[in-house]
Amino acid sequence: MPSDRALEIEGISKTFGAVEAVRDLGFAVRAGELFGFVGRNGAGKTTTMRIVLGVLAADAGVVRWAGRPLDFATRRRIGYMPEERGLYPKMRCLEQLVYLGELHGMSGPAARTAGLGWLDRFGLADRRDAELQTLSMGNQQRMQLAAALVFDPEILVLDEPFAGLDPVAVDVMTAVLRERADAGLPVIFSSHELDLVERICDRVAIIDHGRLVACGTVADLRRGGPERLWVDVPGASAGWADGVDGATLVRVEGSRVLLELAPGTDDQVVLQAALATGPVREFRRAEPSLVELFRDVIGETAA
């Protein structure tokens, strides 16, 4: 269950030469929360995560955990999966996990137990003595997640953990992330799989050009947008909705139209106008998917 502890990112900025990668970015990921971090390529997601991990130094701003700025000791408690995957190619799987566990302060036997547990969980138990480079890309990805989890981290930061995974691996990854969040960790991950993010995340942040453009539950994001209606009137002539006050045509799909209502417009007026043209087969409030919400907010900032 979410507690009052949170990973807080406050006012961070980072400039590379003339490129402003992140500007005054701020949001919080609560403990026990699965948090999706979305944005176009180059929006600043990886830069933000690297700043959280201390791999990059921010020009301004602060990252806190449980109210205290992150220091090196706390950062070592973060399980991190970088965008650029990397483990030792010639090291054996179990050995590699044990090494990383020990670097994070575990005893040898504890690291071994944890390493074996995660290999088992990811279906890699029979590859424990195989060199990493002999594994398939998907299995290397699983190893990368195991490397982030082996030392029982307090926080998880994962850069595109789902990229390149097959559907079975996606299910395993999803279950593990959910389970870690339920165990009380703040879990933040970036992804371009917006359907997946919508399905599994408690909250979502959308960033564009290094700035936060939306943050909240998917329902929150929907509430912020204008009301939209799907109306299917097979018998109506095209353009029947033009005469309805406060309604704007967004899209036509066959005989269905998607209408956007101006604030304060009564949807019953729209229904009556539709009925006046013939039988109405469908009349429902449109629930925009995250993909649509994403396009909307990104479209606004791009314009």
Partner: peptide, 13 residues
Amino acid sequence: ATRIMEIMLATVR
């Protein structure tokens, strides 16, 4: 080259 550095720098000085 293998980018393990990114994990290491987040762990080891």
